[in-house]
Computed example of a mutant assay.
Amino acid sequence: MQYCPKCASERIVKNGRHLNRQRFRCKDCGFQFTRDTPRGRPATEKAMAILLYTLGLSLNAIARIYGVATSTVMRWVRNFAEKTYEKPSPREAVIIEPDEMWHYLHSKKTNYGSGKLIVAIPVSSLTGNVAIVTSQVETTTYQ
């Protein structure tokens, strides 16, 4: 039995065809619809694609496995990241080009101690690009 996707009523009737697909109309709310099956991929499939991506499989390989476009897999990963993780504030991370690193490091106020924590994260192993993440190191005095 079909239900109205808007009000979940069972009182639906056939209401013509559109692009060779049967169109229906709800007698209770007047909503017209053609699709009786949900669109898109199941959530379990998207979750598995995200898991494969976090394990190191490329977007292209995942797209070939599921038979979708690479941009689709990238959108799944991006949507998951936006819902799950919060963006770091500009005070927490600074990303600069490697040629700017020398000027950035020489602009620090202290010439002693650790000063700033620097972490280099490989972004792409094929191109040799790295992201440099720096942060102020907090010092605590214990008595």
Rank of each mutant, 00 (worst) to 15 (best):
Q2Y: 13
C4A: 03
C4N: 00
K6L: 08
C7Y: 02
E10T: 10
V13E: 09
K14V: 05
K14I: 10
K14T: 14
R17K: 15
R17S: 13
H18S: 14
L19K: 14
L19M: 11
L19V: 12
N20H: 14
R21F: 07
R21D: 11
Q22Y: 12
R23W: 05
F24H: 15
F24M: 13
R25I: 12
C26W: 02
C26R: 02
K27E: 12
K27F: 08
C29G: 03
G30H: 01
G30R: 01
F31W: 02
F31T: 04
F31E: 07
F31K: 04
F33N: 03
R35V: 07
T37R: 14
P38M: 13
R39Q: 04
P42Y: 00
A43C: 03
T44M: 02
K46T: 01
M48K: 11
A49I: 01
I50W: 03
L52T: 04
L52M: 09
T54I: 10
G56R: 09
L57G: 01
S58R: 07
S58E: 06
S58T: 15
L59Q: 14
L59R: 05
I62E: 00
A63V: 03
A63H: 03
A63N: 03
I65H: 10
I65C: 06
G67K: 02
V68L: 00
V68E: 01
A69S: 15
A69H: 12
A69C: 05
S71W: 05
T72L: 01
M74T: 10
M74H: 15
M74V: 03
W76R: 02
V77E: 00
V77Y: 02
N79Y: 08
T84L: 08
E86K: 11
E86S: 09
S89R: 13
R91V: 05
E92Y: 02
A93E: 15
V94L: 11
I95E: 14
I96P: 07
I96N: 05
E97V: 09
P98S: 11
P98W: 09
P98C: 08
P98Q: 08
D99Q: 12
M101Y: 07
W102R: 12
W102L: 12
H103I: 12
Y104P: 02
L105R: 01
H106D: 10
H106L: 08
S107Y: 03
K108A: 10
K108Y: 12
K108T: 04
K108Q: 13
K109Y: 10
K109A: 13
T110M: 09
T110C: 08
T110F: 12
T110E: 14
Y112T: 14
Y112G: 04
G113A: 06
S114E: 15
S114D: 15
G115S: 14
G115V: 03
K116S: 04
K116W: 11
L117C: 06
V119P: 02
V119F: 09
A120W: 06
I121Q: 13
I121S: 09
P122D: 04
